[in-house]
């Protein structure tokens, strides 16, 4: 698949996305929008589109980075504790600093996401079993433990509704003024591009990296910062988007290989296309109501994940 095709598809879907919704705006209205229509575009539709593109590309890229750093294709931020730790952090900031500014929440979520990811990677390094699926399962368990701590605290402080709102990702609440912190991901994505070669080398292991004179520990730290920060801002704006960081990098790896320099662009584009398609679907299925994006991504994503698992087994036999 050529990157060009993905980009064309992305542009077409973006265009469609702008004209799906309860307020009737047709493409031919674009040059003579009424004031109401212009408001809908500027306040809701465009912010929604932008946040879909950033979140789709961002989740996929940090999934890929995490898979490189753990050298495990079955690990991703949502399935190995990063998102759960960030979520725990958001809850802590709500309990400790009630009514705090969004920036405080981001910082606390980021710190927790960093700590959780580091801890999980330490655990994975120490495991005796090297089977990637088993290692990924341990990550899943780690995430669940953190998640249950979050639930426990949330119950105690009567915050369970807030927690479930951000654990189920949704773009329907995205409005101008409420999503801008997503832009923090953009410099992180640029950083990921600059470090593409280093992440590829780190994915080949520590001795391989040292041989090439790479500062392995530093690359790991930068990777974890990118993963933790991007997952935190996406969690705080859109909410959790399951499976995305798992399936998109794996699909791209199938046809493009693991050289990040050539696969990062595809990963970002395919992630954005996938989320955009899921979002449009979710908005159309029970129109004028919406199916939450997390549900659509979850249903399609688990199907694709199953396919990837079975394919891997077939390749082994």
């Amino acid at each position: 698949m050529k990157l060009r095709y993905l980009v064309v598809l992305l542009v077409i879907l973006s265009f469609i996305s702008l004209f799906v919704g309860v307020s009737d705006i047709r493409p031919w209205d674009l040059f003579r929008l009424t004031e109401d229509q212009a408001d809908v575009m500027m306040i809701s539709r465009i912010p929604r589109l932008v946040s879909i593109l950033i979140a789709g590309a961002g989740m996929s890229i940090i999934g890929l980075i995490m898979q490189q750093l753990t050298r495990n294709k079955f690990v991703s931020p949502t399935t190995a504790g990063t998102t759960d730790s960030a979520s725990f952090g958001v809850l802590i900031s709500m309990v400790v600093f009630p009514g705090s500014a969004p920036l405080v929440k981001i910082i606390v979520a980021f710190v927790f996401a960093m700590a959780g990811t580091l801890l999980m990677m330490r655990i994975m390094e120490r495991l005796r079993y090297r089977d990637p699926v088993l290692v990924a399962l341990v990550g899943l368990m780690f995430g669940s433990i953190v998640g249950s701590a979050t639930t426990f605290l949330a119950l105690k402080y009567d915050l369970i509704q807030s927690v479930s709102s951000w654990m189920n990702g949704s773009f329907s609440t995205i409005l101008k003024g409420r999503y801008e912190m997503l832009y923090v991901s953009i410099p992180m994505i640029v950083l990921a591009y600059l470090f593409a070669d280093r992440f590829t080398i780190a994915g080949m292991g520590e001795s391989f990296s040292v041989n090439l004179g790479l500062n392995y520990r530093q690359v790991m730290r930068i990777g974890i910062v990118i993963v933790a920060l991007v997952s935190s801002v996406i969690l705080l704006t859109v909410g959790s988007l399951p499976f995305l960081g798992l399936i998109i990098p794996n699909l791209v790896s199938l046809y493009k290989g693991d050289n990040l320099r050539s696969s990062l662009g595809h990963t970002a584009a395919l992630g954005a296309v996938f989320v955009l398609a899921c979002d449009i679907m979710g908005r159309i299925v029970i129109y004028p109501f919406e199916v939450p994006i997390g549900l659509v991504v979850g249903v399609l994503g688990s199907g694709i994940f199953l396919f990837l698992l079975l394919r891997r087994r077939a390749a082994h036999e």
């Binding site: 294709k73 790896s253 693991d258």
Partner: peptide
């Protein structure tokens, strides 16, 4: 090293 068994597709 002997263990350059890679699961990286390059």
């Amino acid at each position: 090293k002997q263990s350059n068994h890679l699961n990286v597709k390059l």
